[in-house]
Design a protein around this nucleic acid. Structure first.
Lengths: 184, 184
DNA sequence: AGATACATGTAAAATGTTACATGATTTT
DNA sequence: AAAATCATGTAACATTTTACATGTATCT
């Protein structure tokens, strides 16, 4: 009951094949939920069997045929039911935090290098999100009801990345380590 | 290769029984990694078989006997090896973000109420972290090398909660909904 | 000729969740 | 007397990850 709903939301936005979905899960919706194509194909088959989805074979010349999935009335019903449910507390799971906490029992220098790497990665991701935001929502003051949710979720991603970078900065300062790139 | 290292870090800090660990995973280390007792007992058995841990039966009058686990040299070796590995990008998984993104296809009012609920929960968690921080690290300017990592990880938790609350505020404002409690 | 993009899957292994199971002691 | 805390597990099920499998078309 997890990837299922992420796929339902994505298909509600626009019908797609398993392959298309796999690419979406590498960006846009994938910023907040990761999934591989193997997982996606399996869940699509299960949801089609459950009657939440309908598949249509689409052939384009010079390309393999694809199965495009669309929500059925039952699928839309399930999506509505799910949105009305209160979200359970998300189970936190941060390898990185555990590693920082365990640095004194391992390779201190390597962990500091890892913090610096993590910082770089989040700087890149922040830049990516900000570019995405400017591109899709150039005028945040004038958003339609349809655009608002995607915008707000992206704002959450931007805030999260900023916070992560600031946290890495605080750690590198406290550990007396230099920061690898300019930014701050 | 996930809960394993969280348990190794916790046991490196102090030897414990499965039951003790289950309680630690309800707080402290559990802020960054969730695990149930069923999972913990299974992983402990596996790691003992692998020679990373050693169990000693401890009996206290008026209480059931417990098996206290401690790291072996191999266990410490594995922990060091793991800390030296670069941390792979964490796979994001936010039910809540997916739900916000899908609000237009479901029950808008229910999702707004859910955002308010989420906000309250993170206000509570922030208060908890801050109290924990004041209690364990009353003088953050004077931390020993042993205290620093746990302090920094807690700081990360505090920053994360603050950001989450601010994000919920932004969403409630944008959606024209009132905020349930004082705070801001 | 080799790499990348398009397109869809199966199978095995590892991990995680939920339900079941038991029994002593302490607190309300 | 019932509920909570202490203490350790097994079993079934669901989910996720990793490896295997296949084939066409386009780009370099």
């Amino acid at each position: 009951m997890a990837l299922d709903h992420a796929i339902l939301v994505s298909l509600a936005e626009r019908s797609a094949s398993g392959y298309d979905l796999a690419r979406r899960f590498d960006k846009s919706i994938g910023f907040f939920w990761k999934a591989t194509h193997q997982q996606i194909y399996k869940v699509l088959a299960r949801m089609e069997a459950a009657g939440w989805l309908e598949a249509t074979a689409v052939e384009e010349p010079g390309r393999p045929a694809k199965k495009v999935y669309a929500l059925t009335a039952d699928g839309r019903g399930e999506l509505t039911r799910w949105t009305a449910e209160p979200t359970p507390t998300e189970s936190v799971r941060s390898d990185f935090a555990v590693k920082v906490r365990g640095m004194q029992f391992g390779d201190r220098g390597a962990v500091i290098a890892d913090i610096a790497r993590q910082r770089d990665r989040h700087i890149d991701r922040l830049a990516y999100y900000e570019a995405d935001c400017t591109k899709h929502f150039p005028e945040p003051e004038r958003l339609t009801d349809g655009e608002l949710p995607a915008y707000l979720v992206l704002r959450g991603g931007i805030r999260t990345e900023q916070t992560y970078i600031e946290w890495c900065d605080e750690m590198l300062d406290a550990l007396g380590a230099p920061k690898p790139r300019s930014k701050r």
